[in-house]
């Protein structure tokens, strides 16, 4: 297993063990010393430490895992799961917002419209994608893509990973709120199946705008909330350092949201999180996606709208907590 570039706070013990392994490996290469058993033992300890840490993640730790820079993003899911991807760009009104990328492609032989928030992976791509914080044009591009899906009877798959919609002057000027409202509305009126996967952060209105779907799935360690834990803490406690408390109080984890009836399923992650084995997670996501799409294909346009409507109207009316 390769060492990660980024360790989260609670992964310190894992980082130390992995550093030791590297050290020993370098040593054995140089001197031919007998360290094979030591390394084996250490590897076992790393595995145990990782399994232990990830089995008991707190909501705040999950928020950090959800934001891990090496977690697979929409561009990765598209690369692995979608054949013949053709990116489509622009809102036809003002510009192309790369905080949401999308286009056409084949998912296991079925034509689909895919879209999702992209955060970027290094400084220049993060700037290009505005850290996954979409402007109105991103949502208007999403609306355009959903219109197209409806017209050509294609299912929509969306990948959600955003800290929230971009709170900037230009975004306000060009109707950020209206763009989000219309995009949410477009999801809810689709006569084709729509599946949303929250892969990292589901940040409030910026997330729901492309997540009002027939089936909403979350990765095991992703989070979905009405406001970021930091934002909530700074409003309610006037202290953003209390984000861990806010994360706890708001119920932001996939497990809590499944219990609340807000999401429809959870996609399991390996011990160590999606970033420790991105390809494995994407394979599992692909399997679940295929199954969900198969289930939804039994419904016609009216059935899909009714299923979506009934599902969202039921939320909060029957609470099992």
């Amino acid at each position: 297993m390769s060492a990660h570039k980024t360790y989260l706070d609670f992964e310190k013990p894992i980082a130390e063990l992995e550093a030791k392994i590297e050290e020993l490996e370098a040593l054995s290469e140089g001197s031919g010393a007998e360290v094979g058993d030591d390394i084996k033992n250490l590897r076992k300890r790393v595995q145990d430490a990782r399994a232990k840490a990830y089995a008991g993640l707190t909501p705040w730790q999950k928020a950090q895992v959800a934001r891990h820079p090496e977690r697979p993003h929409v561009v990765d899911y598209i690369r692995v799961l979608i054949d013949d991807f053709v990116e489509l760009r622009g809102d036809r009104g003002f510009s192309d917002d790369q905080a949401i990328v999308g286009g056409l492609g084949q998912f296991r032989g079925q034509g689909v419209v895919i879209m999702g928030h992209e955060k970027g992976t290094d400084t220049s791509s993060r700037l290009k994608h505005n850290f996954g914080m979409a402007r109105p044009e991103g949502y208007r591009k999403a609306i355009r893509l959903m219109d197209m899906a409806e017209r050509f009877s294609l299912p929509v798959i969306s990948f959600v990973d955003t800290p929230g919609a971009y709170p900037g002057l230009g975004a306000e000027e060009r109707g950020q709120a209206e763009a989000i409202a219309r995009s949410t509305e477009r999801c809810l009126t689709l006569g084709v199946p729509m599946i949303s996967i929250i892969t990292g952060e589901g940040g409030s209105g910026g997330a729901i705008a492309i997540a009002a779907a027939n089936s909403v799935l979350m990765l095991e360690h992703s989070v979905y909330s009405v406001i970021s834990p930091e934002g909530c803490a700074s409003i309610l406690w006037r202290d953003s350092a209390r984000a861990a408390d806010a994360a706890e109080a708001m119920r932001i984890t996939a497990q809590d949201l499944h219990k609340l009836g807000v999401i429809d399923g959870i996609i399991p992650e390996p011990a160590g999180g999606a970033h420790s084995a991105p390809n494995d997670v994407m394979d599992v996501a692909g399997e679940i996606l295929a199954k969900t799409l198969g289930d939804l294909s039994a419904l016609d346009a009216e059935g899909l709208k009714a299923q979506r409507r009934d599902k969202f109207l039921k939320i909060g009316r029957v609470l099992d907590i």
């Binding site: 409202a181 949410t184 509305e185 999801c187 809810l188 009126t189 409030s204 209105g205 729901i208 009002a212 979905y224 909330s225 009405v226 406001i227 909530c232 409003i235 309610l236 109080a249 708001m250 119920r251 932001i252 949201l257 609340l260 807000v262 409507r309 969202f312 109207l313 939320i315 909060g316």
Partner: peptide, 22 residues
Amino acid sequence: GARMQEGILSLMQMPRTTLALQ
């Protein structure tokens, strides 16, 4: 804005009210 004390259930009122308008 949203009622933070109701967490995600407050966010869900965005699609729910939109459905009522539909």
